[in-house]
Amino acid sequence: MSTTISPKNAVQVEASAEVKAVHQQMLRQQRLNRAATYAVAILLVLWILVPIYLIASMAFTTPAAVRAYPKGVLPFIPFSFETMNFFLQSEGIIPGVINSIIVAIITLVLSTLIAAPAGYATSRFLFPGRDFYRLSVLAVRAFPIVVLSIPLAVVFINLGMYDSVYSLALMHTALALPTTILVIGSVFASIPFELEEAAQVFGCTPFEAFRHVVLPLVLPGIAAAAVFTFVMSWNEVFAASILTVQNRTLPAQVLAVLGQSSEPYQFAGAFFMMIPALIFIFFIRRYLFNMWGQVSK
């Protein structure tokens, strides 16, 4: 018996040594891969962050330091609010900021109010024409802003609604609506219908079930969509430049004077326009995948 076992044992011992070696090699390989992945990740992070850091350093220093050449290797020195103050006190900036905020808030409210029922309908009901509706919304999403702005400007002139923040908000709502419908649809779809049914079984009316069960669950997602709409409207420059003349939004104002403005003005302006993105994207980053993942389904 022992004679039959011992060769087997020997083979096993030999094999385990080989496996160990392979295993170790694989581990080493894996560690190497991981280190390489980290290196790539850090490079990519630097690629994104270094330009932002550079412009931020220009926004928070003295105008003299902005104009200096060569610029310091370590900007932010001297640290100062002078450049930013200069930008904010320039003509048309504060009204521009106020206009931008008004437009963005109207857009946000209007698009959420219109999109929420539509999103609910597409996720809760299987109705004839549903796929066609979703497809049309997607197709509309793909149309360029440039194409819409000119005819809307002409229409608004004829209606006497030109150069108004409200008209611009109507246009921005049209731009935001398709995305908002799809996103809110996906948010509703992620809440099982059984929850609503269960609430109704326990005696809630359909409205109560919606109000007390579904709404608290979807609110964060809808809020994220609304925040994204806000950022989109805040950033939008083409339609804003076409549709407003006196009542310019912030990007339209900066663009209009870009050719005649000084570098401190431009750099501080650029960083100021980035602030909402830096703050809001942090809060909604998880929902971004809901939003754009939806588009590809």
Partner: peptide, 30 residues
């Protein structure tokens, strides 16, 4: 988060940002 930041940045701000790098007294020359 870092990879998605540019998604929310205005096109105009990005233009100015790269202008600050490439302009004659900009960061690249510095």
């Amino acid at each position: 988060y870092v990879f998605t930041i540019p998604l929310g940045i205005s096109e105009l701000a990005v233009g100015i940002l790269w202008f600050s790098i490439f302009t004659q007294s900009g960061f690249l020359n510095s």
